[in-house]
């Protein structure tokens, strides 16, 4: 491909891909632990401890993917970084305060004196909600081209709710995988409730995106693109059906298929993300700045890429190690 002859072409593309992967990994990984936080009010106090225990060893690293994603935006597309983040100034601030609250609540709820635990549980819930809602809000604003009108604001409020539902759905699927007994049974119920919201949200975003932008509409509804893009919506619908089926077989005494909903929800997140990425490419700031216009100098991107090629497989390796070390059920509490 001629693209790969010119570093000013393939380097921005590679970095956009890396950034996309980081966002996707973040949305899946922090998605489930944010979702666990959002589900807090539906659990008993003992169950809350188990829920936190199921994400305890992972959440730090999960949030690091957000830092990597925003870091890649910052270092590879500096002008876009400024443009996007100043446009999203307030939701970013709300998200950051949410992340602060829930991050520290993790630690404080078990280290502060017992009477304070309920307050820190509340902080954990509020922080998780603030983070999920503001991320969904930013997604909506981004889809609407970062415009500030009453209509875009309303749409962003809707995506805020849907992304929060999506996070709590994948959170519930994570709990099905990591817990057993009464909590697992509850998690199955949560997931069954969430799946409708999830399907509705996916549908709304899929419909709204092409309607907002004629360019995106043309990208999807032109021949022959339509043909080879068709699998994306079909697979998504199929995954939703498979998810529904896998949930109806749970919980069962052998714990058979307890992983399946989590795996399917990852597939669904990947498909949804793929659709969005296709819609917006080559723009990094919708309809304004392409990745090629926003990219840093090739020599700076090159030196980052050299490091990334060496380091990212290592990160993958030791992340896998951590998930292996902490595999299996995070079980019920024993006070002793």
């Amino acid at each position: 491909m001629e693209m790969f002859d010119d570093p000013a072409r393939w380097l921005p593309f590679t970095f956009a891909a890396l950034m996309g992967v980081s966002i996707l990994v973040y949305v899946v990984l922090d998605g489930f632990d944010l979702g666990v936080g959002v589900l807090f009010p539906f659990a008993t106090d003992d169950e809350k401890d188990t829920m936190v225990a199921s994400i305890g060893p992972f959440w730090d690293a999960n949030e690091t993917w957000l830092v990597l994603a925003i870091g890649l935006l910052l270092v590879a597309f500096p002008t876009a970084h400024g443009e996007i983040l100043t446009a999203l100034y307030l939701p970013v601030a709300i998200m950051l305060i949410g992340l602060i609250l829930r991050g520290v609540a993790f630690e404080f709820r078990v280290k502060a004196p017992t009477p304070h635990k309920a307050s820190w549980n509340a902080a954990f819930l509020v922080g998780s909600l603030m983070t999920s809602l503001s991320q969904g809000f930013m997604l909506g604003k981004y889809i609407m081209g970062l415009e500030s009108t009453l209509g875009t604001w309303a749409f962003a409020m809707i995506t805020a709710v849907f992304l929060t539902v999506a996070y709590s759905f994948i959170g519930a699927c994570w709990l099905i995988l990591k817990t057993e007994g009464a909590l697992q049974a509850k998690a199955v119920q949560w997931a069954r409730g969430g799946i409708f919201g999830l399907a509705l949200g996916l549908g709304a975003v899929s419909l709204a995106t092409p309607l907002v932008s004629a360019r995106i509409f043309d990208k999807w509804f032109a021949w022959p693109e339509m043909l080879w893009l068709a699998p994306l919506p079909i697979l998504s619908a199929l995954t939703v059906l498979l998810l529904w089926r896998s949930l109806s077989g749970l919980p069962n005494p052998q714990d058979k298929g307890a992983r399946t909903p989590f795996l399917y929800s990852i597939v669904l997140f990947v498909l949804a993300f793929g659709g969005l990425a296709y819609s917006f490419y080559p723009y990094v700031v919708p309809e304004k700045i392409t990745i090629y216009e926003a990219a840093s100098a090739p020599e700076s991107l090159m030196i980052i890429l050299v490091g990334a090629v060496v380091v990212i497989p290592m990160i993958g390796g030791y992340t896998a190690l951590a998930y292996t070390v902490f595999k299996g059920k995070a079980a019920e509490l024993r006070y002793d």
Partner: peptide, 27 residues
């Protein structure tokens, strides 16, 4: 950004993940 970017990227890649992942095992 051409100077600060790579330095920040190296901080994230060589430090943040290392400490965050092994913290779980350490704790």
């Amino acid at each position: 950004g051409n100077i600060a970017g790579p330095l920040l990227a190296y901080e994230i890649m060589t430090a943040f993940f290392l400490e965050a992942v092994f913290l779980g095992i350490m704790l």
